[in-house]
Design a protein around this nucleic acid. Structure first.
Lengths: 206, 206
DNA sequence: TGGTGTGAAATCCTTCACAGCA
DNA sequence: TGCTGTGAAGGATTTCACACCA
């Protein structure tokens, strides 16, 4: 029996998020679990089982309507933004070459997030870099995050400062951190972390 | 009973890779599973169990020698590079703002990888960007990858070109792809993929 | 016939429990 | 005593099997 609480495991959520982008560029009006399998490598039964866990309203029995499916998934995943659910506020912590590359705000258009601030300990970077939102010295992090009610952060500082910055962010009230460093972060359990370090990824596939 | 084949699950490998970086900056000579727990959030028994799966040679019974442990893990994970196991060759595919930020070769120093080439369909980028290794138009990808025996790639093209580039890379003989796009890649099973999209990561922690 | 929805079975991963060691 | 090493138990995820539907 299915709970109405919709407590979907994280791993299912990840697949469904990726599926949404796939559906967005799928041209046919209907799609089957076999076709999704061909495009992703996930098994057809995993996909159908995921849908079951997501508690999709049914109707069709030979394939899913692409647009409807995507709509419903985005709905359930909370990816839609509108007047009621506005875009989430984001900051970039660490403006080295990689961090600076993220300052391009249209990297996050369509994502449900808007960048509100950038931080760096290096005052020179803060002054010289151009962006359509303000950059601050790291000393002002706590103040700005609270004032602007920023809830999410992308962490691109260097390894040795990663943990201490993560702690500052947590204390300032951030709810989630995307960790681009190769360091493991230990944060309070109300703060979510996703690791996306390129170097670690390389070591994994090596 | 433990197999001598050392078939460690991917997830254990991920933790151990992260642990290696942690150990590298840990100052005490010995470390216990409790201390690792405090620094990472993984449970002590998961850690000890992982070590068991990694088939560590034992000896000590109240903690591990930091340096030895790190050495041995790096050994077993194949992270060490020397004359016998030289650095792996890498290319960057897609030289937009994010891709260009990776051209900084010392991003990958100490990682066991060296960048050998960058590719983009946009000839202007190929010509204007500066780097300490050659940049080529995407049309030359197959040729260059084969000639230079490049085995790994970081993919930073835009979503709509991701799958076709992944196929080109696979055909050229690449063994692993770090996927920075938000697209799911379908590749032959001899090609490994790790997903590190910032946008997807944000959606996950949202 | 070719697909979905669903629970059960199989597999994979984490946690527990405890003997054994310094 | 405080820790590790280890197998077994428990929990999570994936796959299977099959009734049912257009």
């Amino acid at each position: 029996m299915q709970s109405s609480q919709l407590k979907v495991p994280e791993i299912v959520k990840k697949r469904m998020i990726q599926l949404c982008t796939l559906l967005a560029s799928f041209s046919k009006a209907k799609i089957t679990s076999q076709e999704i399998k061909a495009l992703t490598g996930w098994t057809a039964s995993t996909i159908r089982h995921d849908f079951w866990l997501m508690d999709l309203k049914k109707g069709v029995s030979n394939g899913y309507f692409t647009a409807e499916l995507r709509q419903e998934l985005e709905e359930k995943l909370g990816l839609k933004t509108d007047a009621e659910k506005p875009e989430k506020k984001l900051c970039i912590v660490g403006l080295n070459r990689l961090g600076a590359a993220l300052l391009d705000e249209n990297m996050f258009s369509e994502s449900g997030f808007t960048i509100k601030a950038g931080f760096d300990t290096n005052l020179y970077r803060v002054e010289i870099l151009r962006s359509s939102f303000p950059l601050y010295p790291a000393t002002q992090m706590d103040f700005v995050i609270k004032k602007e009610k920023i809830e999410y952060a992308v962490l691109t500082v260097d390894s040795k400062n990663a943990q201490s910055m993560a702690e500052k962010l947590s204390k300032a009230g951030v709810r989630g951190i995307v960790n681009m460093t190769d360091t493991v972060l230990k944060v309070p359990e109300n703060v979510k972390v996703e690791n996306v370090s390129v170097v670690n990824a390389l070591k994994i596939i090596k």
